[in-house]
Design a protein around this nucleic acid. Sequence first.
DNA 1: CATAAATCGAGAATTATTTCTTTATATATA
DNA 2: TATATATAAAGAAATAATTCTCGATTTATG
Lengths: 230, 230
Amino acid sequence: MNESKGRSIPETVKGVPEPTLRRLPLYYRLLKQLRDSGRAGVSCTMIGTELKLDPTQIRKDIEVTGTVGRPKVGYDINELICAIERFLGWDNTVEAFLVGAGSLGEALMGYGGFTECGLQIVAAFDVDPTKCHRVMHGKHVRHVSKLPNLMRRMKVRFGIITVPAAEAQQAANLLVEGGVLAIWNFAPAKIQVPERVIVTNEDLYCSLAVLSQKMTRKLALSRSKGGSKP
Amino acid sequence: MNESKGRSIPETVKGVPEPTLRRLPLYYRLLKQLRDSGRAGVSCTMIGTELKLDPTQIRKDIEVTGTVGRPKVGYDINELICAIERFLGWDNTVEAFLVGAGSLGEALMGYGGFTECGLQIVAAFDVDPTKCHRVMHGKHVRHVSKLPNLMRRMKVRFGIITVPAAEAQQAANLLVEGGVLAIWNFAPAKIQVPERVIVTNEDLYCSLAVLSQKMTRKLALSRSKGGSKP
DNA sequence: CATAAATCGAGAATTATTTCTTTATATATA
DNA sequence: TATATATAAAGAAATAATTCTCGATTTATG
């Protein structure tokens, strides 16, 4: 008598702002910590203090998950955790294929935390035959030529690309051939896929740009203010 | 007679929007490709077509780098590349220490492309003694206890954290002790640092959230429209 | 040389996101 | 029971970012 009636998730007819989506995991992590430490309830004020974010913003973010709180009390931590999981789709296991068994691929396979988000890497693929036929963090590494068929047979719908930039498009093509639904692309290259395929790029250069520009700016400012040359 | 006169970079008195900063590397990469293919000039229209972005937005982004174009012609590719490099601080080499010599750390050290952005990882550190005293992609791996002193002696100001979440704060502390200016944090955990230190979090869970929510939404929609159960 | 087409640049309009304000409600305390 | 206080919720306002509009400029073409 909780999920069945009407809109458990507000249908998401109108897309949720991406900034909100990116903040939800931050709350999620904190909530789990709080729960482990024995708390049962939490207020936006508390989350805000902890994460240095505006409480109103947090309240609006939580709203999209469909969770309701009580004045003066806040939210039930368990309920909130479940709501975020449900909203993000982290309550169901999604199997994924990983293309590119280099060190980045290995790092992701070894990253135990993804299962918490329902993401399970079930196999890895590589073009390099010397990397194939071995087991990495409990997952078989196979040759990329096997990918499309295996993907269809196993009904895997999620792909992770961890190959060098130059090979990213080929990797994407294989995944598309296998009927992929969503791709998490770690290669610093844009990939062309059919419109129906959802892509998120994890482009390290974009993040680095933010950091290095801020650093550059800071250095420039400190130099012009308190620096040696006026 | 190009940089010396007046404001080569528009001083950046008022911070540049982060979305702009994150797009600049995309242009940068494309521009280098275009240059390699022999082109000398480029218009926002062309970049926009290539990257599927609005030309006006690109024009505004380019504006922050201080580059001026010519109507009907566009921008000089070389000039634009240099301006972006200068603006992001990618024209100067920045030396970095990496904390956490696991597979993610190894992946980053092996990632040749960072030198293009002026980022040079000069050494790695780990708490695990068995990982120390070896060479990884040409860089020495040392024990974390050596970090602060070495960092001050070598005047390294940039830190990269690739340790597990539970150890992130310790890693940050060491870097702060060493006088770090900016931290690129790959651990899925918030780190507490003095206000003067610039931090960029590369939190994979945040990106995954975007992707899995979109996927979940899509599946929900397709089920409610063309699915089996009405 | 006049005309057409492409494109920059500036600013207006729109849209998205965040922050502020107010109101209502639940709990604790006197 | 009455009062004070913390907080959610709803909506208004402010701010940030994107997209649109238009005038100016440069090159190409007849």
